[in-house]
Design a protein around this nucleic acid. Structure first.
Lengths: 244, 244
DNA sequence: GAGTGGTCTAGACCACATC
DNA sequence: ATGTGGTCTAGACCACTCG
């Protein structure tokens, strides 16, 4: 009877979904599965790998395989009406609200605009941009990597070209330049991370990432910033509020 | 020298990212990898599985393993100001714009509101809702599953309780009831699908899904619909336009 | 019928975590 | 020191696709 690994995974998944095994609990190990199901060790290994690849479990070599804990952060993208209280406090997924993250690995440099970015910023090919990249850490977990691109001619001599952008951040500086961002377009997709991205976000295998590319526009619809973000999908719930 | 499977996967990934292997191309098969790398068949198998799990390749048993093709659909969530043309035509990911999908598997029935849904709709526990679920197919691919919940007392005697909601769809019917949805709150997360969801969306292994829960509100901020959607992440780019 | 990916076995060695 | 997951081997059988 083949299909054994899948069946073992199905059993364990059922025990997780029924609540018999709770988040953080240790799953039966490989030797245990070998005994109870009478399979080879590698089959047991693959059964556990299935659960890991589904994002239901996390393997900790040398210790065991554990039911994954899902404690996401809520990121709210506000539209102008969102100060009103519709939907206040009601949500489908429980999530911590917007803890202030630790910002690390700040890098700022000037470079030629990558092709796609240049198009979004409405720049001629080869025009320089200021690139700001940084990593956000919550509870010792790296959860987000962000890279911003701004026209160098606009911001070169401001705090935006420094690691520390000052009070209010780069948007406050843009406002001082008469280029306050007020419209935003976000493009979003989800995919599996590359090996590199997995390492940078310290992702468990089987966790997808959310990739967001946000363009910020001034009141007169001039693009002034492109922000590319990579989020650990296991750490985020995104919220959008819209009015038609 | 362990780590062999990963290294083989790295090699192949590099050949994909360099453009030597194009979307749709066939990767070297297991027997070929066994020869060129001098490894066991199962190691070759696992190397290919790594690429599949990363979403870079698709295995077609009996035929080969192929570089995945990514041809997403664009879904635009408009804010009320977005009729203006900012960002017009510029986007970071190429995507077909909103082809009209085929709607299949329509099911409509009345049931007690699930706990979470009831809370979002601001209903007392146990109050009945009309449930509408359907599947959207584009180019023979199922790409989206949607389940809507509406207060039964509001819509029971309308076309919304029928499979065919008539011209303009259920929102037009709600408008006729004086309950036109004008505000929307979307909660969004990405995760790996369950086996069931994988089957329903006909997903290649290694493809994440986007899970969206959208609540629709009337002008006076009354929730009138909750729509839970599951999207094949490989088939969608989402776009949000916001103003602050 | 030949070739493909999918899976299983039985045994082995490793690095690591935990005690 | 023991137990854990991670990986590899060499060989096997299966169901499937394709020419």
């Amino acid at each position: 009877m083949p299909e054994t690994a899948r069946q073992i995974a199905d059993d364990l998944r059922a025990r997780i979904e029924s609540g018999e095994l709770l988040p953080g609990d240790r799953l039966p190990g490989e030797p245990s599965l070998v005994k109870t199901y009478g399979v080879a060790k590698m089959t047991a290994n693959q059964a556990l790998k299935i659960l890991v690849s589904e994002g239901l479990a996390v393997a900790r070599p040398g210790s065991g395989t554990y039911v994954r804990e899902f404690r996401p952060i809520r990121r709210v993208a506000n539209d102008r009406l969102s100060k009103s209280r519709w939907n206040a406090g009601r949500s489908i997924w429980s999530a911590d609200v917007d803890q202030r993250p630790l910002v690390t690995d700040v890098q700022v440099y000037e470079a030629e605009a990558p092709h796609q970015i240049g198009r979004l910023l409405n720049l001629e090919p080869g025009v320089p941009v200021i690139v700001r990249s940084r990593k956000f850490v919550v509870e010792d977990r790296p959860v987000r990597i962000a890279t911003s691109y701004l026209p160098a001619d606009l911001v070169r001599d401001t705090a935006i070209a420094q690691p520390n952008t000052g009070p209010g951040g780069s948007y406050a500086r843009l406002a001082e330049l008469g280029a306050e961002p007020v419209h935003f377009a976000e493009e979003l997709r989800a995919r599996m991370p590359s090996e590199e991205e997995r390492a940078a976000l310290d992702l468990a295998t089987g966790t997808p990432i959310l990739e967001i590319c946000r363009t910020a526009f001034t009141e007169d619809e001039r693009p002034v910033e492109v922000n590319q973000m990579l989020l650990d999908a296991g750490s985020y719930v995104l919220e959008y509020r819209l009015s038609s």
